[in-house]
Simulated assay, not measured.
Amino acid sequence: MRIPLAYISIILIWATTPLAIKWSGEGPGFLFGVAGRMSIGAACVVTLLLLMRQRLAWHRQARLTYLAVALQIYGSMLAVYWAAQFIPSGWISVIFGLSPLITALLSAIWLRERSLTPGKLLSYGFGIGGLTIMFGSALQFGPEAVLGIAGVLVSAFLQSASAVWVQRIQAKLPALSQVAGGLLLAVPAYWLTWWLTDGQWPASLPPASLASIVYLGVIATTIGFVLYYYVLTHLAATRVALITLLSPVLALMLGHTVNHEPLTMKIATGTALILAALFMHEYFDRIVGYLVRKTTAKRLRSSA
């Protein structure tokens, strides 16, 4: 029961995170927004460690795991916060939905998993088709929207690489320790990046931005990341990435309803193709295998 509950919680958190990311950067800037979020998250996670009297391991595998987690917390999140300036929040979740396909490719190369079956290769075609339509739709919003899509793709790649790297290391650390170690590496990097590229304390901090930063720090970072790495410890990286099958639809609906973001036919078509790609990626080979087994069994009964 714990794993399904954690899985559902991650879906809901990921569905609300894109809009919160967009709001958190409106006013103070995206760098301050993400640095503030991760600082709050780090404080919460360290507090939890102290309350649970859980110490961080510092052996070689642990250090490598923290570095792999930091790749997602710093690299992936920095890219998506930058991209959120240029595209509607719902698009972030939709494009991020391609991460299972990226994860499957990286798992085949890095973990030698049998993750490039005919069904999964066919799903790549649907995913690329959906992404092409999304790029075409972005051109209507200007060249910056194309940059936003590219930024989310970079973010999805870095998150997938981080997930596969964590599984390759196999340090078997508690989820809370993984997040704490990654945050301890990522937070100084964020503030250094902010100081070098901006360095200006925001003149104003709108209530929506402040609430979003706090929500992202306490819920999305502390609870969301811990649940994510908890599930990642118990399930295959490709199955964990399928959380993005449901969250894009919820994120699009939320952005359209709450933030009045456009929802055109092109966006709906591109989203549908990407979601179809995710569905095929997970179930096409299973359905074909089931039909083959059923046909074979029927033939054996007939011949008998």
Rank of each mutant, 00 (worst) to 15 (best):
M1K: 14
Y7G: 13
I10T: 02
I11A: 00
L12G: 01
I13M: 10
I21Y: 02
I21M: 07
G25Y: 07
P28T: 03
G29D: 05
F30I: 12
F30A: 06
F30M: 09
M38D: 10
S39F: 09
L50H: 11
R55T: 09
A57F: 03
L64E: 13
T65F: 06
Q72W: 15
Y74D: 03
G75M: 02
V80M: 09
Y81E: 06
Y81H: 12
A84V: 09
S89C: 09
I92Y: 07
V94Q: 11
I95F: 12
I102H: 01
I102F: 03
A104H: 02
A108V: 05
L111M: 11
R112L: 08
S115F: 02
K120F: 00
Y124M: 10
G130H: 04
T132N: 06
A138N: 03
L147S: 10
I149P: 01
I149L: 10
L153Y: 07
A156S: 12
Q159N: 11
S160W: 03
S162R: 07
V164T: 08
I169D: 09
K172P: 01
A180I: 13
A189L: 15
W195P: 00
T197I: 07
Q200E: 11
P206W: 10
P207T: 12
L210A: 15
A211K: 07
I223Q: 05
V226E: 03
Y228G: 08
Y229T: 10
Y230F: 14
L232N: 03
L235S: 15
R239S: 14
G255T: 07
H256W: 15
T257Y: 14
T257W: 15
T269V: 12
T271N: 09
A272W: 04
H281I: 10
E282A: 08
F284C: 09
L291W: 14
V292L: 12
V292A: 08
K294M: 15
T296L: 14
A304F: 14
